[in-house]
Simulated scan of single mutants.
Amino acid sequence: MNSSGYEDAAPAEDAEELPAAEKELAEDAPWKKIQQNTFTRWCNEHLKCVNKSIGDLQRDLGDGLRLIALLEVLSQKKMGRKHH
């Protein structure tokens, strides 16, 4: 307990104490970034014919509109419904 009567928070874990899954994720980070950039470029290559682009996958595909545009380009078919 500290002077205010509360227990101090547990110290942050050291890198050596991280669980195996978290270590693997940390070690894969550069590879995952390369994959993300490669997929983003691939999407943008297909989307340029409809004058759209993706900068951030999570943000730009989040509302589904660019994803629908990508699917329409790849399938060469229009979706039958209006999208908001």
Rank of each mutant, 00 (worst) to 15 (best):
N2R: 11
S3A: 07
S4C: 04
E7G: 07
E7S: 09
E7I: 05
D8Q: 13
A9H: 09
P11A: 12
A12Y: 01
A12W: 09
A12M: 08
E13F: 11
E13H: 14
A15C: 08
A15F: 03
E16N: 05
A20W: 11
A20Q: 14
A21C: 08
A21G: 08
A21F: 10
A21M: 15
E22V: 14
E22T: 13
K23Y: 05
E24M: 15
E24F: 14
L25H: 12
A26L: 12
A26W: 09
E27C: 03
E27S: 11
E27A: 15
A29F: 07
A29C: 10
A29L: 14
P30W: 03
P30Y: 04
K33N: 11
I34G: 03
I34R: 15
Q35I: 14
Q36K: 12
T38N: 08
F39E: 10
F39C: 10
T40R: 06
T40V: 10
T40G: 01
R41E: 10
R41C: 03
W42K: 04
W42S: 02
W42C: 00
C43I: 02
C43E: 05
C43H: 00
C43G: 04
E45Y: 00
E45N: 00
H46V: 06
L47S: 00
L47H: 02
K48N: 01
K48C: 03
K52L: 02
K52S: 07
S53I: 03
S53R: 08
G55K: 15
G55V: 12
G55W: 06
D56T: 12
L57E: 02
Q58S: 14
R59Y: 14
R59D: 12
L61V: 06
G64N: 00
G64C: 01
L65C: 07
L65R: 10
L65I: 12
R66V: 01
I68T: 06
I68G: 01
I68D: 04
A69V: 06
A69F: 02
L71V: 03
L71C: 07
E72G: 00
E72S: 02
E72H: 03
V73Q: 04
V73K: 02
V73W: 01
V73T: 05
L74H: 03
S75E: 11
S75L: 15
S75D: 12
S75M: 04
Q76L: 00
K78M: 03
M79Y: 10
M79D: 13
M79S: 13
G80E: 07
R81C: 02
K82G: 04
K82Y: 06
H84A: 09
H84C: 07
